[in-house]
Computed example of a mutant assay.
Amino acid sequence: MRGEILSYDPQTGSGLVSGDDLQRYGFTSTDPALAAGRRVDFVVEDGQAHSLILLRDPTPPAPTVYPPQPDLGLWGYFVRCVTTAYIDGNGRARRKEYWSFALFQFLVLLLAAMPVLGLVVAEAETGRDMQAWGVAWICIVALIYLALIIPGIAVTLRRFHDVGLSGWLILIGLVPYIGGLFLFVVSLLPSQPIVNLHGAPPKGLG
């Protein structure tokens, strides 16, 4: 028979269970998992409940609620990638976020490299030795490039998560030719329209 525990005193080991036959039965047990409100299966002998077995709670746990990701715009996504999500590979990144970072990464590096060209032109026109300045500025450009590698990896991981793939697949990118093509294809895939292990789909998939 099955029923619900009405009361249970773990100190004395005694309790009362209400059976599905609308009858009440006393019982004794030393099971610490017993508690009022738990459903049990038991055997009735001489008006007492024996061999109580806890049943699984029929109420499933509440699903994890992920708030949908808002659209931050091109610049907003880039700022997020280089600030709050700088080393964060968790969560999801829509195509727009990935390509926003790629666009502004290219523009930042292009603008940073332009003074080098200016130094070359100045050296050619004035005849002054600009090599020291050129080397110094190239080092600055290299530091900017290195600083953008980490958020680039992080947003790529989130892009993999967004399409339902494991972030470890980013290692395929190390394979010559095939790896670059694989990463490019993943960057073009649409977001999964459902909640996955990494969060909710962004508003306005893309």
Rank of each mutant, 00 (worst) to 15 (best):
L188W: 06
V195W: 02
V135L: 13
F101D: 10
P151E: 01
Q11S: 14
L157C: 04
T28Q: 11
D41Q: 09
V135Y: 13
L188T: 04
C139P: 00
V120R: 01
G3C: 08
F160E: 04
A112N: 05
Y86P: 08
P70K: 01
L103D: 11
T84N: 13
K96P: 04
F182D: 07
G15I: 06
G204Q: 09
I170A: 00
T59Q: 14
A136G: 14
P202T: 13
L103P: 14
Q48S: 12
D57K: 07
V82P: 08
G199V: 08
S166F: 05
V155Y: 06
R80A: 10
T28R: 00
C81A: 12
V186H: 08
L205G: 13
A124G: 07
S29P: 09
Q11F: 00
V141A: 06
P151S: 00
Y177N: 07
W168M: 03
V79S: 04
G73V: 01
A62R: 15
G73T: 05
A124L: 08
P67I: 00
L16N: 10
V120F: 00
E125K: 00
G91M: 01
G47L: 10
Y86W: 03
L109N: 09
A154Q: 04
R80G: 10
P10C: 01
F78M: 02
G26N: 11
V185N: 02
